[in-house]
Design a protein around this nucleic acid. Sequence first.
DNA 1: AACTATTTTAAACAATTGTTTAATAAAGGA
DNA 2: TCCTTTATTAAACAATTGTTTAAAATAGTT
Lengths: 205, 205
Amino acid sequence: MKKEIGTEEKIKDAAKAVFLQKGFSGCTTREIAKASGMNVALVNYYFRSKNQLFQLIFQSVMEEFIQSLIQVFQEDMPLKEKMRILIQKRYEFVEKNPEFPNFIHNELGRNAEFNRQNKNIFDKIATSGIFEEARDAQQKGEMRSIDMFHVTILIMSNCDFPFISRHFHLSMHEISEKEMNLKLKEHRLLVTEMLMNYLFPKPSE
Amino acid sequence: MKKEIGTEEKIKDAAKAVFLQKGFSGCTTREIAKASGMNVALVNYYFRSKNQLFQLIFQSVMEEFIQSLIQVFQEDMPLKEKMRILIQKRYEFVEKNPEFPNFIHNELGRNAEFNRQNKNIFDKIATSGIFEEARDAQQKGEMRSIDMFHVTILIMSNCDFPFISRHFHLSMHEISEKEMNLKLKEHRLLVTEMLMNYLFPKPSE
DNA sequence: AACTATTTTAAACAATTGTTTAATAAAGGA
DNA sequence: TCCTTTATTAAACAATTGTTTAAAATAGTT
């Protein structure tokens, strides 16, 4: 269980933590260096520039982020069940990585170039078969017939946003972090029920 | 219709635009000065520091943001109707001010001190009577009995997040800005139906 | 051991940052 | 008009930024 990690890895780990918390323009190279226990020159020795280091981190974070959305779809079960588990896994992923959503959307918003670079990452979703599988279910009448654009936004909205707006609700409802975490755990159940009811309506109505 | 605005106002307007788009640490005093057509010294002449200027802008943006959440509750109509209109108004507000949510949550996350400063703003919600009115409806069985914590998150999630994740979906679904805006308009209808169905379930089930 | 390549360090670089100064221009009141 | 206040400007300030340099330490090889 000993982890004898080299300095390159140390810097990468520290950079990920700092970038996630403060964003690209919210931190300095020296801050990353200090967080990793190294000095400034080493950061550029291994990664050439703050920008390249960020690019590297962003890419990997983005990949993790996307992966958590589609991993469920490799398993073999009915779409409705997949969807329920997807929502659960997604929620739990963001719960473990609360800074991910804000980080990604924030940096994506400020850096329009990333869109081109991450095209291959997005392709992973397109080729995962989610969309086709959903369309089938929709044609069979099992699933509500709405564009997958809406489906993805609905899921991400309800899984990601609670953690994006963490501090906001912390202030508004005047609760402690502990209470907050409990309520957020509770929230997953509501979200799952609401989304499932909406996406797979009872045939009676 | 002529607007003969002074330099103080010009700077404030430019600062709001720049801050909203790039965040506090994502822009410089000189950038704000240039955007307003003035020079750097004038920014500090009127607002003492970049930090104070930001504080001022953030405060006003926060107020607008909160106000859009509660304005409906001053009118006199049944809670269910109020809620439907609230969702609609809220969605349309964010549609007109797409940078608001990301800006607020981003800056709130990085600056924990704001929480104390904005306590009086949050009080506006608490004293608006929303919470009591909802509790009444819940006791009468008209509304689903869940904590208002969940209700606010559900509404904000589905109204705000689509615009926070704008660039993400722009890349993922490979659509143009025009198409995006159309789909987002469409999305409001889904969101409203889903939320209303969940918050005010049919008594049959 | 001697030599080479790699890693690490402290110091310096120029550019940019927020902020201030001191001089000038404009406005307003007596 | 003269004087005081307010507004505006260009220039400078010190601190911080990302990045580089050149020397020292370490590791690896023969």
